[in-house]
Simulated assay, not measured.
Amino acid sequence: MSKNNVIKSIGGIGLSLYEKLPTEFISAFYFEIQKNIDQGILSENMNQELLLIKIALEKRGLNLMDIQPPVEFEQLEFSLLNTH
């Protein structure tokens, strides 16, 4: 599915969420989703979510080669929830 079709199919709602999240969070989330797809925990349909994250990163002038998960996703999630 192309980027435009993914955005049209969700009405842009999902993309706006990723645009609002910190880069560290969405990059860690990307790698967590990919890991779970690779392990068979999540279905290949989640590749649409990966595409939405890639689009959000591109809007920031980044690509997957620019990012690496800084810590385990669970640790990042905990630290983000406890900053407010």
Rank of each mutant, 00 (worst) to 15 (best):
L51M: 09
K54E: 12
D66K: 07
N4K: 08
L57R: 03
S2H: 00
L51H: 02
F73N: 06
E44N: 12
V71K: 14
S43L: 13
I37E: 06
E74W: 13
L76H: 06
E74M: 09
F31G: 01
Q75A: 14
E19Q: 11
I55K: 08
L76S: 09
E72C: 14
L76G: 12
H84I: 08
I7E: 01
G12S: 08
M1Y: 00
G14E: 01
F25D: 03
I37H: 13
L52P: 05
F25P: 01
F25G: 04
I13Y: 14
I33A: 11
K35T: 09
T83P: 02
G14M: 04
E74G: 08
T83I: 14
L17S: 10
K35D: 09
L64S: 01
Q39E: 14
N82I: 11
I67C: 10
L51D: 05
I67L: 09
E74Y: 11
L50N: 05
I26Y: 01
K8C: 00
G61S: 09
S16T: 12
M65C: 10
E24K: 12
D38C: 07
L17F: 15
L57I: 02
E58G: 03
N47T: 08
E19H: 14
M65T: 12
P22A: 00
F73D: 10
S2E: 05
S2A: 02
L50A: 02
N47V: 05
L64F: 08
L17A: 06
M46S: 13
N36M: 15
L64K: 03
E24N: 09
E32W: 10
Q68N: 14
P22R: 02
I26M: 10
F78P: 01
E58Y: 08
S43R: 10
G11Y: 06
N5Y: 03
E44H: 11
I37K: 08
Y18Q: 06
E58H: 06
G61I: 04
G12E: 05
Q34F: 13
E49A: 04
F25H: 03
Y30K: 04
F29R: 14
E74R: 13
K3A: 06
H84L: 08
G61A: 08
S43C: 05
E72S: 14
H84T: 10
E77G: 09
E49D: 11
L42Q: 04
P69S: 10
D66S: 15
I33F: 07
A28W: 00
V6F: 05
G61R: 07
V71N: 14
N45E: 10
G40T: 01
S43V: 02
K59A: 13
L76V: 12
N36D: 13
Q39L: 15
R60G: 05
I67F: 04
D38M: 14
K54F: 01
N36P: 10
Q48K: 02
I55F: 05
L52S: 00
Q68E: 14
G14C: 03
I53L: 02
L81A: 06
R60L: 08
L62D: 13
G12R: 09
I13Q: 07
N36K: 15
I37N: 09
A56L: 06
P22T: 00
I53Q: 01
L15D: 11
E44P: 07
L57K: 04
S2T: 00
L80P: 07
D66F: 14
F29A: 13
Q34N: 07
L21Y: 08
E44D: 08
G40A: 03
G40H: 04
F25M: 10
S2R: 03
A56G: 12
L52W: 04
N45T: 13
Y30N: 00
S9N: 06
D38T: 11
